[in-house]
Simulated scan of single mutants.
Amino acid sequence: MEHTPLIVVGAGQAGLATAHEAARRGVRPLVLEAADDAGGSWPHHYDSLTLFSPARFSGLPGRPMPGDGDRYPRRDEVVSYLRAYARDLDADTRYGQRVTGVGRSGGHLTVTTATGARFRTPALVAATGEFSRPHRPALPGLDEFSGTVLHSSEYRSPESFAGRRVVVVGGGNSAVQIAAELAATARVTLASRAPIAWMGQRLLGRDLHWWFVRSGLDTAPIRRYWERGPVLVRDDGRYRAAFDSGDPDRREMFTNLTEHGVEWADGTKEDVDALVLATGFRPALGYLDGTGALDGDGRPLQSRGVSASVPGLGFVGLEFQRSFSSATLRGVGRDARHVLRRIL
């Protein structure tokens, strides 16, 4: 069994930021990544995905996002950036090593991968985030629906939906982006439990993220307040204009799925070809089962990223882990520094 001072699980934005911060502390981490390259969930997002934050507010520690700082990078730019970042890290990064189990032994943590490799460490950071475990809600009638059903994580581009009737479920940024894109080739409805709550992308000539950073909101522990309000959709005006035109349209969430479509809240039934579930994600931490690190729903028992039940265990990349920006490119480095100070 190989011994190492720190293991980081995942080579997405959270894992790479953690590895960078560990190296700054004089610790060369072992990074275990299931895929054959760095980038985490980014290579698997839909083709047209564009960041909601400008490049100047979208970099990991020690390496600004290249190019015009006011532009909004596309998915492939982010993937290229993360892979370049990984290549320059002072870390032992091993790809094709999916962590399948973590145990506790003699004050240390033991890690096993799908290839049979085993490691022993006093400190481990789970940096697999919340974007590799799609949440599929138990919608009434879903088992009976005979049309296409896919999660937003499986959606790539609108071409295969041309001429079809599509319902997108969700009320957040991804749901709105996907619905608007699909509307160019298909008849699309966004079904959500509440009306879309729009938030302008710019205020007084500045991007919203500039105001977040300058005001201190970016690092504020505001989860309880944020979750009480509606999901805010950031927009430069294009998406709101599309919905105001009725193409796509937005309707109250359907009450039931039928074999061939949906039943709307007013009792009308309509045939639907495809359902896209933009319904978010849950923490991908199944490899920690049996350690006592998770609650009954598979969520980590933690405080500000430090495990409340397993010594030496930390988390980076969880939404609202410490602040508004915790699960973002610009926020994971701050959280990684905090966690490493407490577990190393």
Rank of each mutant, 00 (worst) to 15 (best):
G15D: 07
L16N: 04
H20K: 14
A22G: 01
V27S: 02
P29Y: 03
G39W: 01
G40H: 02
S41A: 15
H44Q: 12
H45A: 15
Y46D: 06
D47N: 14
L49D: 05
G69K: 08
G69W: 09
R71H: 15
P73R: 12
Y81V: 11
R83W: 04
Y85I: 06
A86W: 03
D88V: 02
G96M: 12
V99M: 06
T100V: 15
G101K: 14
S105G: 04
H108G: 00
T110D: 09
P122T: 09
A123M: 04
V125I: 13
S132K: 08
S132E: 14
P134M: 05
R136L: 15
P137M: 09
L142H: 00
L142N: 00
E144T: 12
T148W: 01
V149K: 00
H151R: 06
S153F: 07
P158I: 09
P158R: 09
F161H: 03
V166S: 02
V169K: 01
G172H: 07
A175R: 01
A180P: 06
A183Y: 05
A186G: 08
L190F: 05
R193D: 07
P195R: 03
M199D: 03
G200M: 09
R206F: 14
D207Q: 03
W210P: 00
A220S: 14
P230N: 10
L232P: 02
V233G: 08
D236Y: 02
R240N: 10
A241H: 10
D244W: 07
R251E: 11
H260E: 02
A265F: 04
A265K: 04
A265I: 11
S303F: 11
S303R: 14
G305P: 05
G305N: 05
V306E: 05
A308N: 13
A308H: 06
S309W: 10
S323K: 10
T328Y: 11
R330F: 10
R334Y: 14
D335N: 14
R337C: 13
H338P: 04
R341K: 13
